[in-house]
Amino acid sequence: MASAKPAATAHRSDSGVMERRAERERTRRNWLLSAPALALLVIGASGPLIIVLVYSFMTPGDFSGVEWTPTFDAWVQIFFTRDIFDDTLGLADAHLSIFWRSVRLSLLTTAITIVFGLPTAWFIATRPGRARTFWLFLITIPFWTNLLVRTFAILEMIRNEGLLNTWLIKLGVIASPLQIMYTDTAVLIGMAYVYLPLMVLPLYAAIERFDFRLVEAGYDLYANRLQVLRRVILPIVKPGIVAGSILVFVPSLGAYVTPRVLGGGKNMMIGNFIELQFGQGRNWPLGASLSIFLLLIVMVALLYYVRASTRGSSHD
């Protein structure tokens, strides 16, 4: 009895060792098998990002590139600036106003695309099968064309001698052309047009799954149209709205071509500001820290998305 016990323990631990060895073997094999994918991920995704991160802690080189002297300057410079005249360190209001413009225009773009995207997606989702494919196809057509070309198409429409102004003048609505080009309005029109499909597609996906009997149920329970929209449709379509908003907000925030072409370059957005650092400004570290900063804003937006969508599903 006394001797049997240790024997049993020994046996148990023996099989435990074997099991552990097999386990270790399996882990190693899994690592080995996934190594190519991991390498690709590390080199392809994290690698460049790490270079950007490292550069953001360096000193700007004389003409381009960086000198390998570590410093936090580039990060401090995002928010604070040494006044060029009295040399005091103060809040970089020029930078803040550029960030604010980017966020404001991106939020407005998102709002505009929701207002136009929701009815569009609803319309498509409520067509019969074949027609639905056709309408979706139309939505994807702009993707075939280069962003720059699409932006120039908008330019042709809204410029002073463009389609819109020519027609309005011919119709006698206005006497002299509306100055739309080179304003924030022009940037908004351009971004809303370019990113609208990114809103319509996730919205369509959400509405397509929508059970229309719920609307009937809502009416049966004496809800008016507005109440059905607010209390029945919107909560169910919400994940689509959030996904679409992220898809529109993120590229809007980093937009470069549209503000440059339609905004006339007078007022920068973050994208243009970053370009200035790598180009004429020749301050690569600041450009790098700004890029990471932009990435952080995007991550905050994504975290919000994850939280919003999980909260939505826990309600179900």
Partner: peptide, 17 residues
Amino acid sequence: PKSARDIYTAIWTELQK
């Protein structure tokens, strides 16, 4: 020189803010 360019970039940024 870089010292001058840094000031010019700051003015340029303020101009386009």
